[in-house]
Design a protein around this nucleic acid. Structure first.
Length: 288
DNA sequence: AAACAGGAACCAC
DNA sequence: GTGGTTCCTGTT
């Protein structure tokens, strides 16, 4: 991997296992949108565009310092996906799934944004999750500009802690509105310390997250996987349940059985396995 | 226009 | 600790 910088565009060469569509459209992140040339996203306090030309990654509106301090970690570029794929491919089912989800990367997103985003994700589809987050950001975030276009940052902890339930409902949050407000208050009061979760082990961090209203086993696993580097997390949603039923286990009693199965079978690579399986299930429309 | 899709809370047992 | 029911809203 080689990095260059021209003006405000960072150019990353010799990247392998990197496919933007699979990274941005697999349900782990909700603020990236295709604009005809690349994916535009609001991350932290900036709007950026990423363009992939098949061999090189361009990150527009970023500096070399930004890359080393932030983007390299965000895109999980230090992780050797070739090795992960080789290991997972020893499992014949995954060997097939890996082909479809080629180029997936598990992002290291902001835990606060990820926490709220996945509370919203409960009982919702990707399209609706995105539009709710968009409305919340427009209402509670800060206005920023990039190339004469206005964007809004993800709302701060304080902004959502003091939001009124009625206003949150107007953004489309539905019955999750009080969960969002109460979770924001827990974080604000320090009853849950998001900054400390990365250094905890998986079980301990999960226990903390489960204290938040609106966070159950699946949502907690998503937060652990997509923002806290817990690669053993295996979020089980209906898609995963369907594909696991189809490919691995005949008689499943509940979601907990699937998590335990995955833990035993995939271990610390469970989260990566889940991503390949999720993508594969959606592409193949398994169970529909 | 009624049915459906999608996780967590909540309440029985 | 497990099983069934309810919560919202956009889509079909």
């Amino acid at each position: 991997m080689q990095v260059r910088c021209n003006g405000n565009v960072v150019e990353v060469e010799s990247l392998t296992n990197f496919h933007p569509q699979h990274i941005f459209e697999c349900g782990q992140a909700f603020r990236w949108n295709w604009d005809g040339q690349g994916y535009v996203g609001v991350v932290a306090d900036k709007a950026v565009r990423t363009v992939w030309d098949g061999t090189k990654l361009f990150i527009e509106n970023a500096t070399r310092e930004d890359f080393h301090n932030f983007w390299c970690f965000y895109f999980d570029l230090e992780t050797n996906y070739g090795k992960i794929i080789d290991t997972l491919s020893e499992d014949p089912v995954l060997k097939e799934a890996v082909k479809y989800g080629w180029g997936i990367r598990i992002l290291n997103q902001d835990p606060w944004e990820t926490l709220i985003s996945f509370i919203i994700s409960a009982n919702n589809g990707i399209k609706r999750i995105k539009s709710i987050i968009e409305r919340l950001s427009n209402r509670y975030g800060e206005k920023i500009f990039y190339q004469d276009h206005e964007y809004y940052t993800f709302p701060s902890i304080d902004a959502l802690a003091s939001a009124h339930e009625k206003d949150l409902r107007e953004c489309g949050c539905g019955y999750r509105a009080p969960y969002i407000r109460k979770t924001a208050q827990l974080v604000q009061e320090g009853q849950i310390n998001l900054a400390a979760l990365r250094d905890m082990d998986y079980a301990e961090a999960k226990e903390q997250l489960l204290k938040c209203p609106g966070v159950g086993p699946k949502v907690a696993d998503c937060i652990l996987l997509f923002s806290l580097g817990k690669s053993q997390a295996f979020p089980v949603d209906v898609w995963i349940k369907r594909i696991m039923e189809t490919l691995y286990i005949d008689d499943i009693k509940n979601f907990k059985d699937i998590r335990e199965f995955a833990e035993n079978r995939f271990g610390s690579l469970a989260g990566y396995a889940q991503q390949y399986l999720f993508y594969y299930a959606r592409e193949k429309k398994i169970g529909k």
